[in-house]
């Protein structure tokens, strides 16, 4: 799915008109009129709430195993979505699993967003040789298929949630840095930045006042698109046995341990993957919605 990362990393020419508060109100208004985006946002919000409030919403214990209740089918009394290969309640596992899956999916993008923006803005603002050096160094990462790089890094570091988050963060940083750098370079050459510099504004002030406002938008849009990829990859690493450790509930790991059950109880075995699919699709569609709401010229 790096494969998915192949979406081009070129930044379209920015709409560089000064943006008033009205702009963001406009973005919110356009998003609220976009039915598909609203539905996706609602589904995601519901998933997040269920994951957070699981101890209060779900009576069953996600860790409680039962030898006699193994692999019950969907619709069993007391276990509406059945039980897994160790007899644990699937509803509880799926609800609690959302905590870890969402966390390890969103975290890498969040960290990479902060680091990538900082490095990219610095490179773009510094310009010249410093910029060249940073960007050439990042080119090396593009010589790796990103799934392979993620697997290699987390494989070398060993199994663990932190390691898999670290591996994914590393593969997202170069892409976000590239977006930030190219946006900053575009803004830096504008006349009002020159004017600000001539009137004695310090570099920090220029970055804070003139650059951040124009640059964070495109980086944010790109980053929202990455969340869906990150969800699939993070759970994928757990599926390979590289991420979350058992008995912790996590959708990718659950999919892995239930693989042996696909002949006995296919519906239950497929459930965790369906959760990853729904989440990732909602993130994807929401990112599309945000992008089109932000790119409209007023």
């Amino acid at each position: 799915m790096s494969d998915i990362l192949a979406q081009t990393t070129t930044v379209p020419a920015l709409d560089l008109k000064p943006r008033s508060n009205n702009y963001w109100i406009g973005v919110l208004r356009r998003i609220s009129r976009d039915r598909l985006t609203v539905i996706c946002a609602t589904v995601l919000l519901a998933l997040i709430l269920i994951a957070l409030l699981a101890p209060w919403l779900i009576p069953a214990d996600p860790y409680k195993t039962s030898m006699i209740r193994r692999l019950l089918p969907v619709g069993s009394p007391g276990h509406f979505l059945g039980t897994d290969e160790l007899g644990r309640d699937m509803i509880a596992r799926l609800a609690y699993g959302g905590r870890m899956s969402l966390l390890i999916g969103v975290m890498p993008v969040l960290i990479a967003f902060v680091i990538g923006s900082a490095v990219g803005i610095f490179a773009g603002f510094a310009g010249g040789r410093i910029n060249m050096a940073i960007m050439r160094l990042l080119d090396v990462f593009y010589a790796f298929p990103s799934v392979l790089l993620a697997v290699a890094i987390s494989g070398a570091l060993g199994q663990g949630t932190t390691n898999s988050v670290l591996a994914l963060t590393l593969i997202f940083i170069p892409q976000l840095t590239r977006i930030a750098e190219s946006a900053t370079t575009q803004v830096r050459t504008l006349e009002y930045v020159d004017a600000a510099r001539m009137s004695g504004a310090s570099s920090l002030t220029i970055i804070r006042v003139h650059i951040l406002g124009n640059v964070l938008g495109p980086i944010f849009v790109y980053a929202t698109g990455l969340v869906s990829v990150s969800m699939i990859l993070a759970s994928g690493l757990s599926f390979l046995g590289l991420g979350v450790k058992p008995p912790e509930p996590e959708w990718g790991l659950m999919l892995n341990t239930l693989r042996s059950a696909i002949y006995l109880n296919p519906l239950v075995a497929a459930l965790p993957g369906a959760m990853i699919f729904i989440t990732s699709m909602c993130f994807n569609l929401m990112a599309d919605g945000i992008r089109s709401a932000m790119e409209v010229n007023e």
């Binding site: 799915m1 994928g236 990718g252 993957g273 699919f277 699709m281 994807n284 599309d288």
Partner: peptide, 13 residues
């Protein structure tokens, strides 16, 4: 959209 959102390991299953 489905193509880029589906976890392909799950699709395989």
């Amino acid at each position: 959209v489905i193509g880029v959102s589906v976890p392909h390991y799950w699709l395989g299953m």
